[in-house]
Design a protein around this nucleic acid. Structure first.
Lengths: 159, 159
DNA sequence: ATCCCGTGCCGAACTAAATTCGGCCTCTCG
DNA sequence: CGAGAGGCCGAATTTAGTTCGGCACGGGAT
């Protein structure tokens, strides 16, 4: 993970479809070298994949909310089942498993407030393991375009 | 936005580097047609771009936390300035602007707990406009791989 | 019913990119 | 000082992206 690798990661975070040639040119290296580097970044699991960014508005899901959720009993199998099933609901964008008074933060999207309410009544109120939840509307969700690597720890250096 | 468009969106959410030819073959349409469709999805703003998914662990940032933040005064300019500056900090993954008792949820990453603590002391404790914040550690963050479009509203139908 | 036009799709031709691979350079270790 | 490994390069090949002319279908007007 030298400076070239980290530049590759930075560029591909901004534009995941940047062509290998264009990327090579930006970095001042040969396309074949760039390809090799990028392949290694995949193999090492540093680059996990590529995703299209889709407009929630265009998908007709302009309403977003964060649902703070507690489940009981807080057992391994119950936690795993909750994460697994909730993540796959179409209204759910992502699930944060938390330490603290809330066990999960569930980021959900809906067509409008009525659908959000219906979704919560159907999927949350009904579930036995859900001991309680609070819903907060999200006005806006901003994302940092680039996450830079940090210098490796002493432990990672040795590996 | 017919069934073909929505299939394109679904596939590109799962694999943003899927080649046009491979995508066309999956859908049973000609590459030229598929290219045309995909271009229109960009032009309409439905597909906003592509991003490489990077492993936070490989980037040496295994610790994640959600920081619930209140700012005062809750004025437009103060809110905008906060969002803008915080989103660009390297430790920040994303910022949710919220309704309710917390004004923001800030998703942050760090090398370890010590760095997280230092980051909060440097960037949050110091700021005048931050009236208070609570930090909760994130054990895990799962993401739904595919967000499907919802059928259009009556209002959108007319457009 | 028929003609006309617009829309969308197809596939061949062309342009450009991805990929492979042999060779070279450099650095390190014996 | 020589041998080997690693990494990089660039030409050649394979594969993909892109353009464009033409065809088919469907709707509306005559």
């Amino acid at each position: 993970m030298d400076e070239v690798d980290s530049a590759i990661v930075r560029h591909l975070q901004m534009d995941g479809r940047l062509s290998n040639r264009a990327l090579a040119e930006k970095l001042g290296i040969a396309p074949s070298t760039c390809l090799e580097r990028t392949r290694l970044l995949h193999k090492r699991g540093i680059i996990q994949g590529y995703k299209a960014q889709v407009s929630l508005r265009a998908l007709n899901r302009p309403v977003q909310a964060m649902v703070s959720t507690q489940i009981r009993p807080l057992r391994r199998d119950v936690v795993a089942a909750f994460e697994q099933s909730v993540t796959q609901l179409p209204e759910v964008v992502s699930v944060y498993t938390m330490a603290g008074s809330d066990d999960f933060l569930v980021h959900v999207t809906a067509q409008d407030i009525d659908h959000l309410h219906a979704f919560l009544l159907d999927q949350f109120t009904n579930r036995r393991e859900i001991a309680g939840f609070r819903t907060a509307i999200i006005y806006q969700h901003l994302t940092n375009p680039v996450l830079d690597p940090l210098p490796p720890t002493a432990e990672q250096q040795r590996a």
